[in-house]
């Protein structure tokens, strides 16, 4: 099972994403955006990692979404192959219309707005550990294939534009009805509160990750590759382990899910 970690100019998480994918049993390589796009068909799945593609010029993800490699990824997605976009990768998938994958561009990832007790307490870039609650049924989505509904998963995030907004008043109903909301920000106990710091970026309905209607394309703002090993966990987490450098962290489940999804598709 070979995956491509797609690198754009300004991507900066490609190496640790590949290491995390390998730790879950996947093989793969970093695929630069300017390679012949047709070479993508040699891979079983794709990850668009985090960073600042094209320096976030115009708006995050907008320029990368117009690259030929994205059109090739759209064709691979239509074949059912899994694609996971992490952070800037999620922004690129949104700008390309691959997520939520309905018709055109359906949402925007706007600047973070942290609201507490009715007041804006902070805006813009934020970096912190967060807890995600898995919202969709098991096997609904490639990147959470092995997770049960209600499972909690810890991982960090670091972004300025992850606040999911939409001008389509009916979109949220549709995403909820179709189980396209995959992850929500929640407290460590699993409670969803729409105020900061639980809703860490002001996203509509605490959304941290969504998938397309078919479930093979997932986008998420937090970074599973940064909690794929137990040694990466914060000192306050009882699961932190520095003795065994290969011990799994919670984020690895995302990559293990992708692997299992590919196995099941075969």
């Amino acid at each position: 099972m070979k995956i491509a970690v797609v690198q754009f100019p300004g991507t900066n998480c490609e190496h640790e994403t590949l290491v995390a994918a390998r730790s879950a049993g996947l093989s793969g390589e970093i695929f630069r955006w300017n390679r012949p796009a047709e070479e993508l068909s040699d891979f079983d799945g794709y990850i668009i990692p985090g960073g600042f593609s094209y320096q976030d010029r115009l708006r995050a993800g907008a320029i990368a979404s117009k690259e030929p490699v994205m059109e090739a990824l759209r064709e691979e997605a239509e074949l059912g192959k899994p694609i996971i976009g992490i952070c800037n990768g999620f922004q690129i998938l949104v700008e390309s219309g691959l997520l939520p994958g309905l018709d055109g561009v359906n949402v925007a990832l706007a600047q973070n707005v942290m609201v507490s007790k009715g007041e804006i307490v902070r805006r813009g870039f934020y970096c912190a550990w967060t807890t995600l609650r898995h919202e969709s049924p098991p096997k609904r989505c490639s990147g959470s294939f092995l997770l049960e509904k209600g499972d909690l998963i810890r991982m960090p995030l670091a972004h300025a534009e992850g606040n999911l907004v939409t001008a389509d008043e009916r979109l949220m109903d549709r995403l909820n009805e179709e189980n396209q909301v995959v992850f929500r920000y929640c407290s460590e106990q699993g409670e969803v509160d729409d105020e900061f710091p639980v809703n860490i970026n002001g996203s509509l309905e605490n959304i941290a990750g969504i998938c397309n209607p078919e479930g093979n394309v997932l986008g998420m703002m937090p970074h599973p590759e940064r909690s794929s090993f137990a040694f990466q966990l914060p000192p306050t987490d009882a699961r932190k382990c520095v003795g065994d450098m290969g011990a799994a962290g919670p984020g690895r489940r995302v990559f293990e899910s992708m692997k299992r999804y590919i196995e099941v598709r075969r």
Binding site: V105, A108, V165
Partner: peptide, 9 residues
């Protein structure tokens, strides 16, 4: 087609 995302701009 490029300069705006209509959901915020």
């Amino acid at each position: 087609r490029l300069l705006i995302n209509p959901h915020k701009d």
